[in-house]
Design a protein around this nucleic acid. Structure first.
Lengths: 203, 203
DNA sequence: GTCTATAGAAGGATAGAC
DNA sequence: GTCTATCCTTCTATAGAC
């Protein structure tokens, strides 16, 4: 009974994840979600009152899933170089399994920045990265890390891993023309990006 | 008469550019475009039969505008390093004036990859970059450029300049938390990105 | 070429039976 | 909890007057 209910709600939610990720909020249709969940449109509203509610739930879960992948960096007890290598390996592997997620998240946030604001407003980034700098104090002489370059470097790291997926649609077309295989390119990128960044920031 | 017609069509087109860029194909409303153009909804259909026709025209123009910014690199008679610096300066300046363009293009292509296929299918990228390698043959000893690393390097360059705008929504929120100004960050990036890449690819 | 009015379809949401 | 039937709004598109 409650087991069955749980199953239905779960099935709806999973269908919604796929459809929203594929079509975006504006492009997604409740009918499409219902069809994919194998149930009736009315049931969607029974479980999640409105389209916006359903989207909100899906978006929050997917956004957290995405950003959680960034946090282990701050905790692991590794050297800075090892952290960078660890990040690219883990994060790119994650996106291999969720290739449409980056584009979806970026796009929905651009359409409604306040969505992400709610999720991260209580994170103190300033404190967070001062902690990083402190924790790696004895390595800093090797790298060109300052309060001023840090935003540049961190966004460079993010861009190196996220961009290929956010631009997957274009890259696949260009790569086909070049005889390059997207999946192999991605596999290579895990190490290439790490080497690239480390080289760039080493004094 | 024909002058007036030209004016109206132009006004509609410009309104459509703004609305589509802001809302995307699925989110844009013909009524919004009409209002912004200061004319009636019916006139939209008089000039551009359907929403899809209008979108197609707008997308094609904007996509070309975006990708045209990549081509001067291949033509200018500069050293590789100067070309990289030139690219970041020009491309980022262009996006400062069109900050929503990258996200829009990437998103619409992901939703319908065949759109871009039509636009670039007759470009021979293979030939294009063999020409580059050839043209800079005498500098290649300085850089780690091979047939295998070239896709990695070129996408890294693209990502370094495009990503900050594609992720503008997130970055602005995070930066606010950090006391970093987005516009200053972008201004800095023109030189930072060039330094970063050149450092990374130099042997 | 431009407008008003409206058709016609699609999509989100609800009522009510089981 | 789940379904069918249907309402109501929104949106694209067209007809027809000027």
């Amino acid at each position: 009974m409650s087991e069955n209910e749980k199953l239905t709600e779960e099935r709806i939610f999973e269908a919604a994840e796929i459809v929203f990720e594929e079509e975006g909020l504006a492009g997604a249709r409740m009918q499409t979600i219902a069809d994919r969940a194998g149930i009736n449109k009315a049931l969607l509203h029974y479980y999640f009152r409105t389209k916006d509610h359903l989207f909100e739930a899906v978006f929050t879960k997917l956004a957290k899933k995405m950003f959680m992948k960034f946090t282990p960096i701050f905790e692991k007890d590794l050297s800075l170089e090892e952290k960078i290598r660890f990040f690219f390996r883990e994060h790119i592997t994650f996106m291999q399994q969720n290739p449409k997620l980056p584009g979806f998240i970026l796009n929905e946030i651009n359409h409604n920045p306040q969505r992400i604001q709610k999720l991260i407003k209580n994170i103190d980034f300033k404190y967070l990265w001062l902690t990083i700098l402190e924790h790696h104090e004895n390595e800093l002489y090797k790298y060109n890390l300052t309060e001023e370059t840090l935003p540049q470097i961190l966004t460079s790291i993010a861009s190196m891993s996220v961009f290929p997926f956010a631009a997957k649609g274009i890259l696949e077309v260009v790569f086909e023309n070049l005889g390059v295989d997207f999946d192999k390119y991605i596999e290579l990128r895990k190490e290439f990006a790490a080497d690239f960044v480390i080289k760039a920031i080493t004094r």
